[in-house]
Simulated scan of single mutants.
Amino acid sequence: MENTFDNKTLLIESTDQVRVDFYKKTYTHVAGGVLLFVLFEYLLLQSDVIVNFMLSMTQGWKWLVMLGGFMLATSYAESTVMKTSDKNIQYMAFALYVFAQAIIFVPLLYMAIFYTESAALVQQAAIVTLALFVGISAVVLVTKKDFSFLKAGLTVGFFIAIGLIIAGALFGFDLGLWFSVAMCLLAGGSILYQTSNLVNKFGTEDYIPAALGLFASLMLLFWYVLSIFMSRD
Rank of each mutant, 00 (worst) to 15 (best):
L185F: 11
T204K: 15
I127P: 04
Y193H: 08
Q123G: 15
T204Q: 15
F179A: 09
T195R: 01
L132F: 07
A120R: 11
V156H: 08
F158D: 00
W178G: 09
V134Q: 06
F202I: 00
Q194H: 07
V181H: 06
V122D: 00
G203S: 07
N200C: 11
F149I: 04
V142I: 15
S196P: 03
F171Q: 10
L170V: 14
F158H: 04
L154N: 05
A126H: 07
I127R: 13
G168A: 15
L192T: 03
K144F: 05
L186E: 01
G157E: 00
N200A: 12
T204Y: 05
L192A: 06
N197I: 03
L150T: 03
A161G: 12
G153R: 04
S190H: 11
L164V: 10
V156R: 11
V199Y: 01
L186F: 06
I166T: 13
L154T: 04
D206S: 14
L164M: 15
A161M: 09
E205M: 15
I208A: 07
I166A: 15
T195E: 01
E205L: 14
V122I: 10
A187S: 10
T143I: 10
F158M: 13
Q124R: 14
A125M: 03
I191V: 11
L175Q: 01
K145G: 09
S148T: 11
I162T: 12
V142F: 12
F179L: 05
L177I: 07
S196M: 03
F149H: 09
A125F: 04
F202T: 01
Y207M: 10
F133H: 01
L192N: 01
L130D: 00
V140N: 05
G203P: 01
N200M: 14
L141M: 11
F179M: 04
K145Q: 08
L132H: 02
I208E: 04
I162Q: 11
V140F: 08
F179Q: 06
K201Y: 09
V199I: 06
F173V: 07
I208G: 07
V199M: 05
I166V: 15
V122M: 10
F171Y: 08
Y193N: 03
V139F: 10
K144R: 12
L150D: 01
A167L: 14
I191R: 04
L198D: 05
L132Y: 02
L164K: 12
L175S: 04
A167K: 13
A126L: 14
A167V: 09
V140D: 02
L170I: 13
G189H: 05
A138S: 10
D174H: 13
A126M: 14
L121K: 11
I160M: 13
I166M: 14
